[in-house]
Design a protein around this nucleic acid. Structure first.
Length: 471
RNA sequence: GGCGCUGUGGCCAAGUGGUUUAAGGCGAAGCUCUGCAAAAGCUUUAUUCGUCGGUUCGAAUCCGACCGGCGCCUCCA
């Protein structure tokens, strides 16, 4: 039984999808005016892990992530880059898709974009207007928050308190300072679409209401995003969707903690960010994913290169075992003893951890416990039946591989190297062994050291020398 | 001011009433194995969970007070 912490009820609840085994899930994606930073990728990676775990648990997930391609920042960028806003959106959306692929994030079923859903958006606003939740002031359409009696129910905010907060922009056109834009009238030179209210473009929140309901239904299972979206974005989505459709919007709201730098939120405006693209030049997707997996998704997490480096070191332990398994399996079927290992115990522990509100740090701990036990058995056992390695591989493949995405069995030296290269390495290993047999350690060490500089690491085991390719 | 999150070993981080005198990762020290390495294993590294009180047979876990850090309330994952 999976339990999910629901922001809406502030409680951990049993997960009951509306239509099992189907699960409909919507995640707020990027606004494509720039590269996204490593803090943004925390949400993308953790929702990916949640999606993968739901699939592991037998659910059939329909996963929708919007790509916002109409927005003030995009317009700003288009002026800066002297390009059309459309080109800017396409350019950064493509970078986004490239980068999340590099982060080993599974593709969404749909990446809806407002520019492709203008009819749905306009219809939603029309519906709100006809039901009296929206009003038009000279081509600007606003949502009237006082009309929606549940306003504030997600974020726990009270309209009166918000008003007294006095940090809300003053806009004379609004009836209430908290009212927000559904449709923005186009200024000269700005991109626009024709609508019943004249030329303009949609406000930010309305696209998510329109596109999520279109692709997932008026009521769907999971809606996720960063903590900063709780208010006003998700609050407004609820107000729009429920007012327009007259139906409950979302069953489980999930929100993610920020990635901090020196205990401060990483953000574009503070300038304390690293793009995911740059981090990926130095660290593998697996290392980044392990780093995020080692902290619970809901809490804050500090980022530094040292911490990421630590995760990468931890990954080596996993990868060393992976190489060991591959080397053993490559050398053909071997008879021998099958060490006793309670695989089911580990599988259960892994599932229990993830069932409990996706406790990935606990799940990672289970995997490391497993690795330790396996390594211990390997070092204690003289001749191991290859079926044992197959079982180990299977366990790692489904947990660390399919769910967490911190190991990739499809990526190995076999794929990366030509036959001739392999033969050359084998030849050097043979020469080194001959040197060793003659106790010519100067030469044997020279071979090993120089290969290491090329990224080929030799390791002497009991009966043979194996090589591993680093990077 | 309102709402929410958070304070656990050198660092990161699970655990939220007894099976925990606290998991896992990084780092550090020693040992085993090795020609030397590497990898791996073993041992050591928090009688203690921000502080002070309280509840309880029993608390890191519940309650209260206090101290500290962060976020949202304005675009933001």
């Amino acid at each position: 039984m999976i339990q999910i912490y629901n922001t809406f009820t502030k409680n951990k609840e049993e997960f009951r999808p509306i239509n099992p085994p189907n699960v409909n899930m919507y995640v707020c994606g990027p606004t494509v005016y720039d590269f996204f930073h490593i803090g943004n990728s925390r949400t993308f990676i953790m929702t990916d892990i949640i999606r993968r775990y739901l699939e592991f648990a037998g659910y059939k997930v329909k996963y929708v992530m919007n790509i916002t391609d109409v927005d003030d920042k995009i317009i700003g960028k288009s002026i800066e880059e002297k390009k059309s806003f459309k080109d800017v959106g396409v350019k950064y959306a493509n970078y986004f898709l490239e980068d999340i692929k590099k982060l080993k994030i599974k593709e969404a079923d749909v990446y809806p974009r407002p520019t492709e859903h203008m009819d749905s958006i306009i219809n939603l606003i029309k519906e709100l207007e006809s039901k009296g939740f929206a009003y038009n002031v000279k081509g600007n359409v606003f949502y009237n928050v006082l009309k929606f009696k549940g306003y504030g129910k997600l974020s726990g905010k009270i309209i009166e308190d918000l008003e007294s907060g006095a940090r809300i922009e003053i806009n004379e056109e609004k009836k209430n300072p908290l009212d927000f834009s559904l449709w923005k009238k186009a200024k000269d030179g700005e991109p626009y679409w024709e609508s019943p209210w004249g030329k303009g473009r949609p406000g930010w929140h309305v696209e998510c209401s329109a596109m999520s309901c279109l692709h997932l239904g008026n009521t769907f299972d999971i809606h996720a995003g960063g903590n900063d979206l709780i208010f006003p974005h998700h609050e407004n989505e609820i107000a729009q969707s429920e007012a327009a459709n007259g139906q409950h919007f979302v069953n489980y709201w999930m929100h993610f903690g920020f990635l901090n730098i020196n205990n401060e939120k990483m953000s574009k405006s503070l300038g304390n960010f690293f793009t995911a693209r740059d981090i990926l030049k130095k660290y593998s997707a697996e290392a980044i994913r392990l780093f995020f997996s080692q902290a619970h998704y809901a809490g804050p997490l500090n980022f530094s290169e040292d911490l990421l480096f630590g995760a990468q070191k931890g990954l080596e332990k996993l990868n060393n075992l992976k190489r060991k398994i591959e080397n053993e399996l490559d050398s053909g079927t071997i008879d021998g003893v099958i060490p006793k290992l309670d695989f089911d115990k580990f599988k259960t522990a892994f599932s229990e951890a993830m069932d409990d509100n996706f406790n990935s740090p606990q799940a990672v701990a289970v995997i490391f416990d497993f690795i330790r036990d396996v390594n211990k058995l390997i070092s204690e056992t003289t001749k191991i039946n290859s079926s044992f390695y197959t079982s180990v591989k299977n366990f790692l493949e489904i947990t660390a591989g399919n769910v967490l995405g911190i190991i990739d069995f499809t990526k190995n030296k076999e794929n990366d190297m030509a036959t001739k290269e392999k033969e050359l390495i084998e030849l050097l290993i043979k020469l080194r062994q001959e040197a060793k047999a003659k106790k010519n350690y100067t030469l044997s060490d020279k071979i090993r050291d120089e290969l290491k500089e090329l990224g080929i690491v030799l390791e002497d085991t009991k009966d043979k020398t194996v090589y591993n390719i680093i990077n």
